[in-house]
């Protein structure tokens, strides 16, 4: 039998999903998306996977909502696309189609899930007894940075290339001018909207605490919940907070954003190259220096993720001329 907590939590997820998809105003669906992030974080906790809850709270609720709210505030009523108004001819047609096929698909999926005789994963034994030679105790960090390090490498490359893509949509394709490679992202010096004095005061007070929290999450990752992605998101949140409260980060960002963004992936690949050099397969680390390799890669990966997420926020605003 399922407990009443699960029923309420499940219905809450459905209700907030409805709030997030159905309303017609952009600000309301963004707020709904923020609430969905929080409710889903609680669901992850209910299914007692703490790392995923941390990641969802930091990345899903925190950073994504920062981007979405900025987007919704910048252009509240969608120009031109006639976005949300129901099609003039048959306003009830689209919801009807949506409801019909949505309902049937959900029933089919639920039926299959209900009847499938599930199998426990075959790798649990393998993970436990090969854990010592990953150099870390926490199983999730072990999987992320040793067993399936290849997935994590490709996925941090995805974040780096997404940052390269949004930089390419800036003025000068992200370069100050074709000759130099200095970062010319227009936003580093672009003015941010005026903010009452309470926020800069609080931001300056909180920034060291957030940095400390980020670093703690990173180093705790090897023994308990935490890791590169959660700490990267917290550090990026600290940068966004400073940026919104007019702290001048322009000079440092213009110089350091690009190398830090790239550093994580480059070091990961070079560390992976150590395997073939010693006659082992790719991305394999000897048990004796495995911990050092994993920690080194994780620190630079955290910096890369923080830089990547900060670039997403930085380049969100249109520099003039790139209309």
């Amino acid at each position: 039998m399922i407990s009443s907590l699960d029923i309420t939590l499940g219905l809450a997820v459905l209700a907030v999903t409805g709030l997030c998809l159905i309303p017609r105003s952009r600000l309301v669906i963004t707020m709904g998306f923020l609430a969905l992030g929080i409710v889903v974080t609680m669901v992850w906790l209910r299914l007692d996977s703490l790392d995923v809850a941390l990641a969802e709270a930091a990345i899903g609720t925190g950073l994504l909502s920062a981007l979405m709210v900025w987007l919704a505030v910048r252009s509240p009523e969608p120009p031109g696309a006639g976005g949300m108004q129901p099609s003039p001819r048959l306003p009830w047609l689209r919801p009807l189609i949506g409801l019909a096929c949505g309902g049937t698909l959900a029933v089919v999926a639920a039926a299959v899930w209900f009847r499938v005789d599930q199998q426990l994963p075959a790798w649990q034994a393998g993970v436990e007894d090969q854990m010592p030679d990953t150099g870390v105790e926490h199983p999730i960090t072990g999987v992320l940075l040793a067993f399936r390090a290849y997935d994590t490498l490709l996925e941090s490359a995805i974040l780096m290339l997404t940052a390269a893509a949004v930089l390419a949509l800036c003025r000068g394709g992200g370069l100050s001018d074709p000759g130099t490679h200095r970062l010319g992202v227009h936003q580093t010096s672009a003015p941010m909207p005026p903010v009452p004095s309470a926020l800069p005061w609080a931001a300056r007070l909180l920034a060291p605490a957030l940095m400390l929290l980020g670093l703690w999450l990173l180093f705790a990752g090897s023994a308990e919940s935490g890791g590169a992605f959660q700490s990267g998101a917290v550090l990026a949140a600290a940068f966004i907070l400073l940026r919104t409260s007019h702290v001048s980060l322009g000079a440092a960002t213009a110089h350091w954003l690009r190398p830090v963004l790239v550093g994580g992936v480059v070091v990961f690949i070079l560390a992976g190259l150590a395997g073939p050099v010693l006659g082992l397969p790719w991305l394999s680390w000897q048990p004796e220096w495995a911990f050092a390799a994993v920690l080194g890669v994780e620190v630079l990966l955290t910096a890369g993720i923080a830089a990547g997420l900060y670039t997403l926020f930085l380049t969100l605003e249109n520099p003039e001329g790139v209309r």
């Binding site: 490359a157 780096m160 370069l175 000759g179 490679h181 963004l261 992936v265 480059v266 690949i269």
Partner: peptide, 11 residues
């Protein structure tokens, strides 16, 4: 992938 990363640093 390594070349893609390095190419972001050069003009």
């Amino acid at each position: 992938l390594l070349a893609a990363a390095v190419s972001m640093l050069v003009p």
